[in-house]
């Protein structure tokens, strides 16, 4: 079988300083293959990664490696997922080179003046398997490795945890709320996922800790033996005036645990939210209006002209199964 390789910036999966942000849940990165959408993921049980040996003010190569190792451990420690990483060593190879090495490093990219970091992939487009993934951290910003954070710098481990989510194949989550600033950027009021596209800001170390939406996303992509049988899936469809709504952000809220896990509706209005604790859930549907649509989805055809809607039925996530599909009808703005 011939392997076609595609090097693609599948998403500029970056944390933006004060750019758009939204409230969402997890989404898996993927690509279309012969009309079928396929998620991308690593197919090896232990993924090798390299650290670029460049230094930036406040972060030595060894500190860089140590912070990344802690961020990797955060993802490895999810009890319902099986994925492992192995540090392969320091390298002078540059992130984003197609060299079969998965390299993390600092790079100065002044033209991306709101981008803290970004992840790119080389993917086997036949199998969806990730062949290589590189991550750069934009060295035009000041970085911190301080245990409690530094109010004037961005926390490296927090941003690394986010980028490693992409490295695993997760897209952005929209579980968060933002407000528009006077300069046109956005300020995060609250974030419900490490994979929210906008940073909580300088000094914050909150994104070192995964949230239920992140855990559901990575577990759905790399499930351990009991994940499927211990959790449930909710499926449904979002409609407005009898027509499917594309790109609606659907969040399942567990009124017992307080967890928020979500996903987006597709072009046919259908959505699927996996990794839910069995039990009844409140369903909240909102348009993507807290961040740029392309932070999450291809903007073409995405409908944002509807009101925030709560479904009038509690939807039960069955243990080890999938709910009966249901329709949520939203109203135009």
């Amino acid at each position: 079988m011939s392997r076609r390789r595609l090097q693609a910036w599948l998403v500029i999966v970056a944390l933006v300083l004060a750019a758009p942000g939204t409230a969402h849940a997890y989404i898996h990165l993927g690509f279309d293959n012969a009309g079928q959408s396929r998620p991308i993921k690593w197919n090896s049980s232990s993924v090798l990664w390299y650290a670029n040996d460049r230094t930036v003010p406040g972060v030595s190569p060894s500190q860089f490696q140590a912070e990344l190792a802690q961020a990797f451990t955060t993802w490895e420690s999810v009890p319902t997922a099986t994925i492992a990483f192995q540090f392969a060593g320091f390298t002078s190879a540059i992130p984003l080179d197609d060299d079969s090495l998965s390299v993390f490093g600092f790079q100065s990219v002044p033209e991306l003046d709101r981008v803290l970091g970004s992840t790119a992939f080389v993917v086997d487009v036949i199998t969806g398997s990730i062949v290589e993934s590189d991550v750069f951290f934009n060295s035009i910003f000041a970085w911190s490795v301080a245990a409690g954070g530094d109010a004037t710098r961005f926390d490296l481990r927090s941003v690394a945890t986010h980028e490693i989510g992409h490295f695993l194949g997760l897209g952005h989550s929209a579980i968060g709320e933002t407000e528009v600033r006077t300069d046109g950027g956005r300020r995060v009021l609250g974030s419900g996922a490490v994979m929210f596209p906008i940073s909580l800001g300088r000094g914050s170390v909150e994104d070192r800790v995964l949230q239920p939406d992140d855990i559901a996303g990575v577990s759905d992509l790399y499930p351990d033996g009991n994940f499927r049988s211990d959790t449930g899936i909710i499926t449904g469809r979002v409609r407005m005036n009898g027509v499917a709504v594309n790109g609606a952000h659907v969040v399942a809220f567990n009124p017992q645990t307080g967890t928020l896990i979500g996903n987006f509706s597709g072009a046919d209005g259908t959505f699927r939210i996996a990794g839910l604790t069995p039990g009844p859930h409140v369903i909240r549907v909102e348009p993507i209006d807290d961040a740029d649509i392309d932070s999450f989805l291809d903007p073409a055809g995405v409908n944002v002209n509807f009101q925030v809607t709560f479904h009038d039925r509690l939807i039960v996530a069955p243990r080890g199964g999938t709910s009966a599909s249901f329709d949520v009808t939203v109203r135009p703005k």
């Binding site: 609250g190 017992q256 928020l260």
Partner: peptide, 20 residues
């Protein structure tokens, strides 16, 4: 049960409240 998001300082931001 509140539906809480996290703020930069780690405090809660209330997305909505629920009573069951």
């Amino acid at each position: 049960q509140p539906a809480n998001l996290r703020t930069a300082s780690g405090g809660p931001y209330r997305l909505f409240e629920s009573e069951t």
